[in-house]
Nucleic acid binder design. Structure first.
Length: 288
DNA sequence: TTAAACTTTCCTGTTT
DNA sequence: TAAACAGGAAAGTTTA
């Protein structure tokens, strides 16, 4: 969250995300900033209703994402289909069950869940917000504010990120346990700024039901996609990076750097159209 | 402290 | 004419 001295975010005057985002976005996510509200909500997170035992499958996935993020583990390194469980089933899993389901990451997950079950804490620093909190966030009285004045907009991508990568139909690549990829992905990679731009874009594409109208596939099998709301996507990216001055022009410059690394390929003659390259992972349907 | 990775920012010129 | 594309250059941020 970047606030200027006045407490008002700096947004290009010509850009209104509210105008670009679909209604479902503004209605559901365009409210309280997680990072702002978390501190005030943290103490309420672990009421009985939010005990892991009571989680939905969806909340289980959120917890998975958060735990992997916290430990900087590549989300593609565990088979999420093994965690198609609700909280009760999750809590019934033994340590061995976790290691069977997630390999070496299983112990981390087991420890995290144990902490939650017994301490009501998520480590010392975490700000994990199960989906239930969204109800409270949604109730945050700011929905009528204009984007420029709204302290909450920059929560959108965080909420999106949590929800994005863990839909049952968007499970990312899960290399076989013995593959070199697994080893590599379970090692901390140099990822100084968290999610990379191309991963952010990929996750939007993988969740069209939650992100309608921002980016869409042009040719799913070939990895060709097109920006529909380029400035909105740029602002979401900026929000994720706490950079309120992000524009599509800057975002597209970063995208062009991916050509050299073969994460993206050029699509000549078509505006706002990009194609995933051979070094982009997790976007193929076969990756699920 | 340094190097590397990965943007971010600014810019000029070109294309659609 | 505006928007988007292309890519050079340099600066900024974060991590190992």
């Amino acid at each position: 969250m970047v606030l200027q001295a006045s407490g008002v975010m700096s947004i290009p005057a010509t850009v209104s995300v509210d105008n670009q985002l679909p209604a479902s976005w503004t209605a559901h996510y365009n409210c309280a900033d997680v990072s702002m509200v978390t501190s005030s909500y943290t103490s309420r997170l672990w009421s009985q209703d939010l005990h892991p035992q009571n989680w939905t499958k969806y909340q289980v996935w959120e917890w998975l994402q958060q735990t992997l993020d916290m430990h900087q583990i590549d989300a593609t390194s565990i088979p999420f289909q093994n965690f198609d469980l609700d909280g009760r089933q999750l809590c019934n899993m033994s340590f061995q069950d976790f290691t069977r389901a997630a390999g070496s990451v299983g112990s981390i997950l087991f420890q995290s869940l144990t902490d939650l079950k017994w301490n009501g804490q998520y480590g010392q620093t975490d700000m994990f917000i199960p989906a239930d909190i969204k109800t409270e966030i949604d109730d945050f009285p700011c929905s009528g504010l204009a984007f420029k004045e709204e302290p909450s907009f920059y929560s959108t991508s965080e909420l999106f990120d949590i929800k994005s990568s863990f839909q049952p139909n968007t499970i990312l690549a899960s290399p076989a346990p013995s593959s070199p990829d697994t080893k590599r992905s379970q090692v901390k990679r140099h990822n100084p700024r968290g999610t990379h731009l191309w991963e952010f874009i990929r996750d939007i594409l993988l969740n069209p039901e939650r992100n309608p109208g921002l980016i869409k596939w042009e040719d799913r099998s070939e990895g060709v996609f097109r920006f529909l709301k380029s400035e909105a996507v740029a602002q979401l990216w900026g929000k994720k990076k706490n950079n309120s001055s992000m524009t599509y022009e800057k975002l597209s410059r970063a995208m062009r750097y991916y050509y050299k690394r073969e994460i993206l390929e050029r699509v000549d003659g078509r505006r706002l159209v990009y194609k995933f390259g051979r070094n982009a992972r997790g976007w193929r349907e076969s990756d699920k």
